[in-house]
Simulated assay, not measured.
Amino acid sequence: MQRLIFLCFTLFTLQAQIINALVQDFCIADLSGPETPSGYTCKPSANATASDFVFTGLRVPGPKIALIKASVSPAFTAQFPGLNGQGVSLLRLDFDPKGVIPLHTHPGAAELLLVTQGFVVSGFISTANQVYVAKLQKGDSMVIPQGLLHFQINGGGNAAVAFASFSSEAPGLQITDFALFGNSLPSDILEKVTFLDDAQVKKLKAALGGTG
């Protein structure tokens, strides 16, 4: 019995040593290489500097997107290589009056939204088609479960700002409107799957850059 206990303890210790040997403090993304499902390869840790762990791109709004009257400023791995492998990221949203972030999903992450200026109406739709909507003011937060369709709208008459954090450094993004109307999916198919008439489909394709 003692020999069995000793053997088990020895195996456990060896396993722990192997696991610890494989653990790295960090993996700064080498953006010159390809992105894989498990992230980017690491640049040599000996070449790391403090600037690899600092991102200043959220100080000011990003370029305005006229169609949605808002700007979206990401701090994902592609913008902030130090996030690679850390399982976290950020996004800044700046809304003009009537600004909107249309229905979209992040397949790879849950989202935590924090309003820092103005009012934002935020909501998501569950897989049971239950709708959850709330009007958030400065200091309020809302969690968006992973992979669910959701949106944000400026809920007041003035500019609004919010920051979103994600449970992944690469949360992914698919905007429903562009997925349907911003590509080459034939109009006759779209009319069947969306129950829209030909004029509506063509109008949306024209607005969102679709063809066919």
Rank of each mutant, 00 (worst) to 15 (best):
167 S>R: 08
7 L>Q: 12
132 Y>I: 13
145 P>H: 06
103 L>R: 03
63 P>I: 12
42 C>Y: 10
131 V>Y: 04
98 K>F: 05
44 P>Y: 09
15 Q>Y: 11
65 I>F: 05
39 G>N: 04
75 A>G: 13
79 Q>Y: 02
166 F>H: 13
176 T>M: 15
81 P>D: 04
196 L>A: 12
56 T>W: 03
15 Q>K: 08
72 V>F: 11
201 V>P: 07
70 A>G: 09
144 I>E: 01
170 A>Q: 13
87 G>P: 00
90 L>K: 02
167 S>K: 10
159 A>Q: 13
72 V>D: 03
86 Q>H: 05
83 L>Y: 04
73 S>F: 01
102 P>K: 08
41 T>Y: 05
32 S>P: 02
199 A>N: 13
22 L>C: 08
138 K>F: 00
63 P>L: 12
43 K>V: 11
186 P>G: 11
56 T>K: 14
129 N>T: 05
190 L>E: 10
30 D>T: 08
2 Q>Y: 09
67 L>R: 14
140 D>P: 00
164 A>W: 06
15 Q>F: 14
194 T>V: 13
20 N>E: 12
136 L>K: 03
144 I>G: 03
164 A>F: 09
103 L>G: 12
20 N>A: 11
49 T>V: 15
109 A>R: 09
92 R>T: 04
151 F>W: 07
175 I>V: 15
144 I>L: 11
48 A>Q: 04
26 F>N: 14
174 Q>I: 13
207 A>V: 13
138 K>G: 00
107 P>H: 13
1 M>V: 14
185 L>N: 05
81 P>K: 06
182 G>H: 06
29 A>C: 10
191 E>K: 15
179 A>F: 03
103 L>C: 07
82 G>M: 04
